[in-house]
């Protein structure tokens, strides 16, 4: 388990190519353990690409090549000896659009642990995950109903429950609240704060106020003239939003350039 290391994940000179196109170049980023790290930057700067590299989600895209290394507990997750499925269990992901399985609420949570060979009390595990995702009180009386009947915000929290059911160490979130109304968004944000006590969270967001509200650290990415993404600045969120070191960070977060 993590929690002992200062950094949950570290990338070293990580570059991502789609064919000959370099989408992101030379990212050196150390993500502190049990903190929320936000990744912000203009469209096309490679935020989601970087996020997907952290649990080998890019493997699923053809013609992608990753250089450099991504260390998780001291091991490069791109080593040949590493099983990407195991990586994705320990480093979970929540997507922009809630994507529950067309099954019952219960099954959505139980499914991941079942295929991972979970042998304990399944009811207890499902309740624990739903409670952790701040959804239990709303669904406890309809666990056998279809997950597709839940509201958008509830579906997203169900996806978070599904992600934490398999007890990952890191949760990656790609615009987890961008499709939700403001109230549902605040619930997700509160939930992220609570979850960060147990998990390391890395969140990609277009919403700078959201990054400022919820994250402990912020990574600002920008895009150069070749449309290649670069990590411009990584620092404590408070520093980034009150006194960033780089002019381009300042220009972006003050909304002077887009």
């Amino acid at each position: 388990m993590n929690g002992t290391g200062r950094y949950a994940i570290e990338s070293g000179s990580m570059s991502v190519f789609y064919g000959s196109f370099c989408a992101v170049r030379d990212v050196d980023m150390r993500v502190p353990t049990n903190k929320i790290t936000a990744i912000i930057g203009p469209s096309g700067c490679g935020k989601s690409t970087v996020l997907r590299c952290f649990n080998r989600m890019n493997d699923l895209i053809t013609n992608v090549r990753i250089e450099g290394e991504v260390l998780f507990q001291g091991q490069n997750i791109y080593d040949d000896s590493v099983d990407p499925v195991e990586v994705r269990r320990r480093i979970g992901m929540v997507f922009q659009k809630a994507n529950p399985f067309p099954k019952t609420i219960y099954e959505n949570v139980a499914w991941g642990t079942r295929i991972n060979g979970f042998r304990g009390d399944m009811d207890e595990m499902v309740e624990k995950a739903l409670r952790s995702a701040a959804l239990w009180d709303e669904v406890k009386d309809k666990l056998q109903q279809s997950a597709l009947g839940l509201s958008g915000g509830q579906q997203q929290r169900l996806c978070i429950a599904r992600a934490i059911a398999v007890e990952p160490e890191i949760i990656l979130m790609d615009e987890p609240a961008s499709a939700l109304d403001p109230i549902a968004t605040l619930r997700i944000e509160d939930l992220m704060k609570e979850l960060s006590e147990k998990y390391t969270i890395i969140v990609v967001t277009h919403n700078m106020q959201q990054a400022a509200r919820i994250s402990d650290f912020t990574a600002f990415f920008s895009v150069d003239e070749n449309r290649t993404g670069n990590l411009i600045e990584f620092d404590e969120t408070e520093k980034i939003f009150t006194n960033p070191s780089q002019k381009s960070t300042e220009d972006y977060i003050t909304g002077r350039f887009g």
Binding site: Q209, A212, F241, T242, N243, P244, E250, T254
Partner: peptide, 9 residues
Amino acid sequence: QQPMAGDLR
């Protein structure tokens, strides 16, 4: 306007 950084200061 949710000012940030230099604007906020």
